[in-house]
Computed example of a mutant assay.
Amino acid sequence: MNKAAIITVFLMLLAGVPAVAQTSSPNMTVVSVGDGDTLRVRNQQGQPVTIRLACVDAPKLKQNPWGQQSRTRLGQLLPVGQSVQVRSIESDKYKRLVAEVFVNNRSVNLTMVQEGQAVVYRQYLKGYTNTKEQFLQAEANAKQQKLGFWN
């Protein structure tokens, strides 16, 4: 294992999230939503963890009105107190956990793309070999249907 991989595993363990990318961690609870692709949760130990939604990019809050609409929608999908499962991918340079978030076995990341509230972040599709095409197709459909900021 190289140094970067060891550091990533260590950071994930500190966050209380399993280091194996294919493993979900149950019983994390939403604390807040920052914008359309960032949220805070509490892990099973009660520690706060900042999560950056993997594979997607949402408009910034300053990009009116799309940034606020994206944040609002993520807040509707992930209200405070919502229990979520997290499939960790890696930690980013800001020490956030980059992950796919699930509610009732449904990917919130994918939902945001399907609804035109986020786009696929193509250079970060790693970790998505099984669902890459699903994300790209969801974006194409949202664009074609002029959903969210595509309108």
Score class of each variant (00 low, 15 high):
16 G>F: 13
18 P>D: 15
19 A>D: 11
21 A>S: 15
25 S>K: 00
25 S>H: 10
27 N>H: 09
27 N>R: 13
28 M>D: 10
30 V>R: 06
32 S>N: 15
32 S>G: 01
32 S>Q: 06
36 G>K: 08
37 D>Q: 01
38 T>K: 05
38 T>I: 07
38 T>L: 01
39 L>C: 14
40 R>C: 00
40 R>G: 06
41 V>D: 08
41 V>F: 07
42 R>Q: 11
43 N>W: 10
43 N>Q: 10
44 Q>L: 07
45 Q>I: 06
45 Q>G: 14
45 Q>P: 02
45 Q>R: 14
46 G>W: 09
46 G>S: 14
46 G>F: 13
47 Q>C: 10
47 Q>S: 14
48 P>Y: 06
49 V>T: 12
49 V>I: 15
50 T>W: 08
51 I>K: 09
52 R>C: 12
54 A>I: 06
56 V>I: 15
56 V>S: 12
56 V>D: 09
57 D>M: 08
58 A>Y: 05
58 A>V: 03
60 K>R: 13
60 K>L: 11
61 L>G: 00
63 Q>H: 09
65 P>C: 12
66 W>V: 03
68 Q>P: 02
69 Q>E: 14
70 S>N: 00
70 S>M: 01
73 R>I: 02
74 L>S: 04
75 G>W: 03
76 Q>H: 10
76 Q>V: 07
78 L>C: 10
78 L>D: 13
80 V>H: 10
80 V>E: 08
81 G>W: 06
83 S>A: 15
84 V>P: 12
84 V>D: 09
86 V>S: 09
87 R>N: 07
91 S>E: 11
93 K>F: 01
94 Y>G: 12
94 Y>N: 11
95 K>N: 12
95 K>C: 10
96 R>N: 08
99 A>D: 08
99 A>V: 04
100 E>Q: 08
102 F>N: 13
102 F>E: 13
102 F>K: 15
103 V>S: 15
103 V>F: 05
103 V>P: 03
104 N>W: 04
110 L>Q: 03
110 L>C: 05
111 T>H: 00
116 G>Q: 14
116 G>H: 12
116 G>S: 13
116 G>A: 15
118 A>E: 00
118 A>I: 03
118 A>R: 05
120 V>C: 07
120 V>K: 04
121 Y>V: 03
121 Y>C: 10
123 Q>V: 04
124 Y>W: 05
126 K>P: 02
129 T>K: 14
130 N>Q: 11
130 N>P: 00
130 N>R: 12
131 T>A: 13
